[in-house]
Amino acid sequence: MMLSRAARPALRAGVAAAARPATLNATNAANYATLREIEDRLKSIRNIEKITKTMKIVASTKLTRAQRAMTESKTYGQTSNTVFESAETKPLEGEDKKTLIVVCSSDKGLCGGIHSGLSRKIRRTLAEKPNSDLAILGEKCKAQLSRSNGKNIVLSFAGIGKDVPTFADASAIADQITSLPTDYASIQVVYNKFLNAQSYEPVEIEAFSEEAIAASPNFSAFEIEGDALGNLREYALANSIYWGLAEGHACEQSARRNAMDNASKNAGDMINKFQILFNRTRQAVITGELVEIITGAAASEEG
């Protein structure tokens, strides 16, 4: 009994002493800390805004170059496709032959959902035709598709998207694809089509196999000697890949510009919000301090 009674007040006092200054300190510290915290966050958001703004400007300047490259490359692709159009070439309808899908993405991110859009389209196509093989250009789609469809990948290329794609890139890729051991019925080049500065759509262009070209209804209208057909096929594949790469690149730059524009806008909004919060908190702290001083002064006058 004695012990417990003696112990109790001390315990209570200890608890009270521990509790009160702690809460007081906490609110005080919280006030000052939030001010400091808000200031730090404001600073970091300002920095982020600066970065995204710069990236937007970089993307804008790259975009004009990319668009020029795109229109130029389109003529390559379309000219080489005129042959197949006038020959009325159709992809071969054979069940046993495989299709190769060439995916034109790039190595870089921070450009919204254009890579994921491409991956989604590929997954849809693969769900219909699970026998197809994939050749992936660019790290982004490789990372996404290797998780879901790793078994279908036969080739992957990296180093795309640093600059405007060149025809040398495209022809080197086409060479590597034609040297694949499997004989494909058709090759589809899937890329993001540039609809306008805001919207893109993943579409495919066909690059036909030799048999498909030879089997086309109007094939006899052309005079082709010996090996020329194989050469044409290789060249057409390179053209298609170049087209896909260049147009995909333009889309990516445009998407990055938009993404960075949005990011800068959001950062601006956040800066405004935090500025108001910061001012309010600062005022509250000043008011609190004034009240303390005045009450202190009044108390000492009385005494």
Partner: peptide, 24 residues
């Protein structure tokens, strides 16, 4: 500058990425 190409590539087998090599 238009003729340069610095691509790397890798062959895949059974869902595994092979060795990364210089394309040229």
């Amino acid at each position: 500058r238009r003729g340069e190409s610095e691509l790397r590539f890798a062959k895949w087998q059974n869902g595994k990425q092979g060795e990364v090599k210089n394309l040229d």
